[in-house]
């Protein structure tokens, strides 16, 4: 199962307002159901239910899929988030990096206190590394994008508990 494919399917679901997609990869012997839970707020994104599958999959696969999915596209997911954090949207399209270079420390982690001067991340566009500053002061609640992932303009990057 291709993680990128799952991410794209989830984005498609959110865009098209779909509730459920069943996937089958007969070669790998995997069946997967992507389902939007409208009742209970999903931890990050639409839940990925592993219906049946080869031994090689199991927990890590599902875990990976859940963790890797940007909650970004789902306005559904975001609506729930508004209760617990202020989203920091991306000011540009590009590639998201959590640190200045592969060897450096990440700029922020969950729990870190930030001010409007704090650099949260880098967004790279056309080889230019743009430092993205926080718009609010508070504590990082959640990081919504994976290192190295593409982001679009307006896509929520972080959730901050303002104070």
């Amino acid at each position: 199962m291709d993680l990128k494919l799952i991410q794209r399917l989830i984005a498609m679901m959110n865009r098209g307002g779909l509730a459920e997609i069943d996937l089958e990869d007969s070669n790998a012997g995997i069946k997967l159901r992507l389902k939007r839970e409208s009742a209970a707020p999903p931890p990050q994104a639409p839940l990925v239910h592993l219906l049946s599958g080869g031994h090689a999959l199991g927990g890590p696969m599902m875990h990976q899929a859940q963790a890797g999915v940007p909650a970004a596209h789902g306005s559904d997911a975001l609506a729930k988030k508004e209760l617990i954090g202020t989203p920091i949207p991306s000011p540009m399209v590009g590639t998201f990096y959590r640190s200045a270079s592969p060897e450096s420390e990440v700029f922020v982690a969950v729990g870190k206190r930030v001010t409007t001067d704090s650099v949260l991340c880098i967004i790279e566009a056309m080889k230019v590394m743009n430092e993205i500053k926080s718009e609010v002061s508070g504590e990082i609640l959640e990081i919504l994008v994976e290192n190295g992932e593409p982001v679009e303009y307006g896509q929520p990057l972080f959730l901050v508990k303002t104070s």
Binding site: M92, V93, T95, A125, M126, P150, E152, Y153
Partner: peptide, 9 residues
């Protein structure tokens, strides 16, 4: 830059 960045991602 935004258009090129979009093309690249």
């Amino acid at each position: 830059p935004s258009i090129i960045a979009a093309a690249e991602v």
